[in-house]
Amino acid sequence: MMDFEYLVVLLALLFCVIMAMIRVIRGPTAPDRIVGLDTINTIVIVGMVVFGAAFNEVIYIDVAIVYALLSFISTLFIAKYLEGGDF
């Protein structure tokens, strides 16, 4: 059973994700979309930490750490792809 305050926090984070998602869909250029995606990644990490606190399960936070490192690598890779040149 989840406490009420964490539900409120997660709904607010969902609202942030929706706003960033609008930027991903509307963004006129590719870098705009990546900025939105990067923001969504950070918010998802924070959301996982809040989930871990709400359910009192540490495994959510482990997943958050791994997700942070992997999303960082994917962001770097997309940025390098946009930049062009040799890898």
């Binding site: 900025v35 990067d38 950070t42 490192l69 960082f72 770097l76």
Partner: peptide, 22 residues
């Protein structure tokens, strides 16, 4: 992890945006 990766990712995106002509 957030504190280390976030500014570096922003830097990479800014550089990519500038090189791709935005």
């Amino acid at each position: 992890a957030i504190l280390l990766t976030n500014p570096t990712g922003a830097h990479a995106i800014a550089r990519a945006a500038h090189k791709s002509g935005v």
